[in-house]
Amino acid sequence: MIYSLLVLSSPFSGHCSRTAAAFAHCVITRGHTVRRVFFLDAGTLASAANSVSAQDEDTSMKDWAELANQHGVELAICITSALKHGMLDQVEADRNERPFPTIDSLFMMSGLGQLVDAYANSDRLITFGG
């Protein structure tokens, strides 16, 4: 079965972002496919490259990195939400005259069309947060 995930809440508030990553991992372990994880609204903060957590706290970044690097899962962030939350890649940093990019390179700037593409071509779309 083909799954896509929609992540709406910030990784810094509540557990939904990490639950989404754990769910994606389980789906893959059971032999299904994750077509795309789409991050919208505060969910885009999952891409924050410079977030520093307390030493005794895990971050969701390593879970996302494993999904992207080991399983080729596409991590797409909504560009409008991302910009509003200060999440910029190099292109957007240049375009908006900001000194440096702020997102981790695991994540790809994307539009809502990619969310539509994700659910239109998936058997299941699971929403996390909201």
Partner: peptide
């Protein structure tokens, strides 16, 4: 109270556009 209402509307409009 949050950005969710707007996110939902934008998703609705994008879905309709596609």
């Amino acid at each position: 109270g949050s950005g969710l209402a707007k996110a939902a509307l934008n998703t609705a409009l994008a879905s309709a556009a596609f």
